[in-house]
């Protein structure tokens, strides 16, 4: 079984987002980066499925050369190889999907057909909710989104999606595209030997063809903040009566 996992490198923003002076991106000089949370679960699921069924897993990302870090992170927990589509700036969803489709077709021409392609349901940063679905259409494959569970049985995937407090079940034939959500599994921590092995795994670097953004970013801005001060109810256990008084005032007790 061949599995492709598409991931995105995103900054770890912490308590407060600071923008660059040109308002085109988040100021990331003092920030770390990580795999976007939903996709981290996609990586874990791909590794588990290959452990259970045999085969090979590949991780793909479109991003700056530094996105190699996130490819190595995925390799450290067991992904076999990597594809890095190098770009110098953020691409819109259509351009991203087109570049991924081209890469998957090149893989097919080279003899690798993916049974399953994982995406995150939406990326943590841009939240466009569409790259996986666009790729599925271009490849002529079914796409199930927002998975919290996937089981492979006899060439089909049984997928569960959370909706309110229930789960909707889908059943699709492979090959398929799926988008997943955090909570699908609890991703493992990379081990030290895993990290060392990751350094030696192969990465294909490609430069995809750009296309003009049809959803064109003009500027980023912070939402208007509620400029209200925080009311200190007290310090330590002595604050308890003030908290109970607040609960009473707002009618929850």
């Amino acid at each position: 079984m061949n599995i492709l996992v598409c991931i995105k490198r995103v900054p770890v923003t912490g308590g407060r987002i600071v923008l660059r002076d040109d308002e085109q991106a988040i100021e990331t000089r003092h920030l770390g980066f990580a795999i976007s949370p939903h996709e981290e679960c996609g990586v874990e699921e791909a590794v588990r499925l290959v452990e259970q069924n045999g085969g090979e897993s590949t991780v793909l990302t479109l991003g700056p050369p530094e996105a190699e870090e996130q490819i190595r992170d995925a390799m450290a927990v067991g992904i076999n190889r990597g594809i890095l589509l190098e770009t110098s700036e953020e691409w819109d969803a259509q351009a991203t999907a087109a570049a991924i489709v081209a890469a998957v077709e090149e893989e097919r021409a080279a003899g690798t057909e993916y049974d399953l392609i994982f995406f995150g349901n939406e990326s943590a940063d841009t939240g466009n909710y569409q790259v996986g679905i666009r790729v599925a259409h271009a490849l002529g494959r079914p796409c199930v989104t927002g998975l919290k569970k996937i089981e492979l049985v006899g060439g089909r995937a049984r997928c569960e999606q959370e909706i309110d407090d229930q789960r909707d079940v889908y059943d699709v034939a492979l090959p398929a595209v799926v988008t997943v959500k955090e909570g699908l599994n609890l991703p493992r921590y990379p081990s030290v030997p895993g990290r060392l092995r990751a350094k030696k795994k192969p990465i294909d670097r490609k430069t995809p063809n750009p296309r003009p953004a049809a959803l064109e970013r003009v500027r980023l801005k912070l939402p208007p903040g509620e400029d209200k001060p925080t009311e200190i109810l007290g310090h330590g256990p002595e604050a308890a009566p003030a908290v109970v008084e607040l609960l009473r005032q707002i009618g929850v007790i």
């Binding site: 509620e226 925080t230 009311e231 109810l233 908290v243």
Partner: peptide
Amino acid sequence: ANTADFDYAVIGDLHQVLPAISAEL
């Protein structure tokens, strides 16, 4: 107290503050 999203704050260890609130309730 300097986080804009928080309307109210109690400064203290939750392991001491919460049992005191529960006792008060």
